[in-house]
Amino acid sequence: MVELTASAPFDAGMERTIGAVTLRAAETGPVTALMPYAGQERALSAALERAHGLEFPAAGRMTSAGQARCLWSGLDQAMLIGVEPDPALADHAAVVAQSDGWAALTLTGDAVADVLARLVPVDLRPAAFEQGASIRSELGHMMVILARTGPQQVTVMGFRSMAGTLLHELENAMTALAARPKG
């Protein structure tokens, strides 16, 4: 039987600093889509609370507890990240393992918003995209989840199959921004 070797979307420990932004490969741990069945939203949230200590997030929000985070990712959908899902969640929601489907990066630094402004058509000013926000939009032509994970830090999750393009787009934007004439 063929031995399959898992390969990460980015080189382990990848880190690039260009101008005022540092780009790092993010370790997500397990990624699980939770899609509550009709009428089961509250029950799912309660089950999440019991099992992992966090609630099912409201639209545009993220919840977290310890290693576990739950990122809203669309209509009736959130991504549970960092922990293996408790089997009891499946009583209230479709629970789908997606660990191999996603690639995540974090952007840190003063110019994070300026870099993302090159690629994402959404208002990412602090008042509109505050700490704890998790939104869905496009980055270039790719669909992504964007989560504000720190005052000057944003986590970007894109599809695993597009990881190279995601990295390329971000590096391109960072390079062009850093090369701008000052003043």
């Binding site: 639209a59 545009g60 669309g74 058509p121």
Partner: peptide, 10 residues
Amino acid sequence: PLCGSRDHRE
């Protein structure tokens, strides 16, 4: 209603 005001390109 879920995401707020967005450009129609989305």
